[in-house]
Amino acid sequence: MQNPTFDPINQPQHLNKETAAARQVEFAVLAIEAGHSDVAITLSGAAEEMLPGDPDVEISTSLRNAEKAVAELGRKAWIQVTNIERDWLKHRTEHLDARNDIRSR
């Protein structure tokens, strides 16, 4: 993967859904490699929702099926954790704390 840059773009970007989703995934991979789980979760989730796909291979399904976390917390509790983190990152969440600790699991 070529390292993307944040240099100013002086011309329009011509994107389709597939290209935009692929760019989000590329940046999500860079973010996770750098230890920025919050950015990786947000970008990969956005890319996942842009295109039709098989739910069995989606990132959110893989995260929900994380064996170590399911064994430690139980499936129901683990899904609640992943949903809270996703919602906190993606939506206005006045009902949740203004601060959140997100860890790689």
Rank of each mutant, 00 (worst) to 15 (best):
A71H: 05
T61D: 10
E49Y: 08
G35D: 05
N16S: 14
I102F: 01
P52G: 03
H95N: 12
A40R: 01
S62G: 15
E18S: 01
P55N: 08
A28T: 00
N83A: 03
A69K: 06
P55Y: 04
P55W: 04
A69I: 04
N16G: 14
V81Q: 04
E48T: 05
E67N: 07
S104C: 06
G53I: 07
T42S: 12
S60A: 12
P55F: 04
M50W: 09
K90P: 01
G74E: 01
S104Y: 07
V25Y: 09
L30V: 02
T42Y: 12
E18G: 00
I9F: 09
D87F: 00
A20C: 07
H36E: 15
I84E: 02
K17A: 15
I79K: 03
R103W: 10
E72F: 14
G53D: 09
A40Q: 03
K76Y: 08
D54C: 06
L63V: 15
I59R: 05
A71N: 11
A31H: 06
V25C: 05
R99W: 07
I102R: 00
S60E: 11
D56A: 14
G74C: 04
T42C: 12
W88G: 10
W78Q: 04
D56C: 02
R75W: 02
G45T: 11
K90M: 14
H36Y: 15
D54S: 05
V39F: 01
V57G: 03
D7Y: 11
I59D: 02
N65E: 12
W78C: 04
Q24D: 14
A46I: 14
L63P: 04
A66G: 02
T82L: 06
Q13Y: 13
M1E: 01
K76T: 14
E49K: 10
E72Q: 14
V39Y: 00
R103E: 07
E33A: 10
R103M: 13
G45Q: 04
V70N: 03
E18Q: 06
V57K: 05
A34T: 08
E26T: 06
S37E: 07
L51W: 05
R86V: 03
A28S: 09
A69W: 01
T5G: 05
I79G: 03
L30G: 07
Q80M: 08
R103P: 02
A22D: 12
K76G: 02
V29R: 09
V81N: 03
R99D: 13
A47E: 11
K90E: 09
L30Q: 08
I41G: 01
R105L: 12
S44P: 02
G45P: 11
A22G: 10
